[in-house]
Design a protein around this nucleic acid. Sequence first.
DNA 1: ATGAGCTATGTAAAGGTTTACATTGAGCAC
DNA 2: GTGCTCAATGTAAACCTTTACATAGCTCAT
Lengths: 340, 340
Amino acid sequence: MSNSTPATIEDVARIAEVSIATVSRAIHTPEKVANSTRLKVHQAIAITGYTTNAMARSLRLGRSNMILVVAPDIGDPNFSNILVGLENEARAHGYGILIGHTQNDAQRGLEYLKFLNSNQAAGLILFTGILPFGHQTMTARLPATVGVFEPIYNGGLPYVGVDDVAGARKLIDLLLAEGHRKIAFIGDSRTRLAYSRRRQGFEEGMDAANMRPENRIVIDGDGTIESGRLALEQLFMQDRLPTAFMCVNDQTAIGVMLGLTARGYNIPRDFSVTGFDDVPLSGFMSPPLTTIRQPRTAIGKRAMALLLDLLGDGVTPDGEILLMPDLVVRNSVGPPKGLR
Amino acid sequence: MSNSTPATIEDVARIAEVSIATVSRAIHTPEKVANSTRLKVHQAIAITGYTTNAMARSLRLGRSNMILVVAPDIGDPNFSNILVGLENEARAHGYGILIGHTQNDAQRGLEYLKFLNSNQAAGLILFTGILPFGHQTMTARLPATVGVFEPIYNGGLPYVGVDDVAGARKLIDLLLAEGHRKIAFIGDSRTRLAYSRRRQGFEEGMDAANMRPENRIVIDGDGTIESGRLALEQLFMQDRLPTAFMCVNDQTAIGVMLGLTARGYNIPRDFSVTGFDDVPLSGFMSPPLTTIRQPRTAIGKRAMALLLDLLGDGVTPDGEILLMPDLVVRNSVGPPKGLR
DNA sequence: ATGAGCTATGTAAAGGTTTACATTGAGCAC
DNA sequence: GTGCTCAATGTAAACCTTTACATAGCTCAT
């Protein structure tokens, strides 16, 4: 039973009094073996506690049953629920996932590339918009790959994300409906497509409400808490104050809120603030942050399903799958001061 | 160069004009091949872009180069930095990590057991105090295993954590030094050893200050935000109010703080609150939470190092490695109301 | 000059699986 | 009864690596 060395297919074959080929068939293509035989095999499997050696199987098949998930930062609060979605879906199809983080370090990226090339992963899920492998011509040898959140830099690879434009539009429409006219968009960035799409939603909303350019303040930022605080200081120094801050993500919004609170302002009485992503922290701010919730588990599930499809028939489906994010109304938004 | 099928050791051997055995030796035991030969082999490797097929290697060696990390919940804020430590250390030694979460579901636990038995992981890192595999006698076949945070239920397995007693002691000493005399310990639990050790630190500190039992309020909780809020309500209903709340972890403390704020109290003017763990959220509460910082990356690194040792010589080292956690003083603690 | 001792290399087996191909035998039509 | 078809099973090769053992050739002491 629970011996020192695990049972092999041969042990099972001996006990079931068949050949190893029949055992293998009984497991993977049961319709090809006689009922009576199949029964014997399964009994033998139960007796020995046999599980197929995945190493040997992968070697023989030339492909593993692992999916490599690469993210720039495992600690990103946006990450963990996606992972749950990815993992559940993978496991349901007999795959496991394997997680790596690059910390934007090309050296580490290369190690993952080696990992992929040594056949240890059948597929790749990429969290950043860029391939973490420098510009290796090796690209040709990449396995099936799916992006999450953003399309992958060199293009052609499918990805799953949310409709950032629509999400941003929901936020701007809310602010406009509350009566805000002068609105700042904090955290514009050309490096992340998701961010420029949020900016796009902002502009479209302002356009639709016939807001003139002087009512729109746009300021750069990289999406960290610090960047939000910094942007706020800049605006105060330049005396270009809006009545509402629409931030490119929750971190930025938190930075803005902390800055405003530190200056003694009350949210939402003096200023309104919105975020994007709904990271766990946002619900606990005071006031709780109005934001857009990413359907994280769904994104993960969808991305993995897409990858497994790709693995199955090798057909590349639509390059872009956008899920619809939900508006989460909390207390960081109110009418502008003048209207109160 | 970048062909459809990856280069094998045979391709390298052909180009270098040696046997595959020599190639293998040139890679793994370079001192055993002549300098000139080694050079030829490495050139051939460069030309072909060869990387060892990990499947074949693991099959031959009878052990993989993957470590399975199992946690009840990937999303746990305590998790991610540990992971960074684990991963860095593993990668530095040629291992990769593989992450699974059980969500306390025995069925899922069993799937991981199968995974282990199919030889896909050389070692196991366990985040919970319990083996997630029900009570399989299979336990005998577990690979090298190291626990994180807590000893593993059925004992005998080494683990790496922090000195919870000492950490709790730092907190209680701080509260006592501020002048608090009547202190509540929120979140006592017999299910998690870490928690009862924190309780123990609380008691030892109170003992050392000769505090009588009637000054100690102890109340149950499972460590969630909700449990903190609930405990607080109970205390208000029973009219057993302390001047300070020492909470078993940050989540609990956050629950208590939210409850106090909702009732209109000011922290730390009316009540002091402490946590334990220093999850990212804690620094952003208002007021920021005074707590104990877990050396998370260090724990991860240490646990992995321990596991790799175990894998190396099979010798089980000391069963318990406790790191010292640091006190993080923020603004949630002040003198009790009477003393102000 | 001979052989012992070494170093450098090669040969071949083994690890556990899947599967193309071969074999066996039963059912069935003539 | 003969031969065909088909289902069920078996045999053996292949996947790629590592390493015990064998071999070859050199150095050096005698």
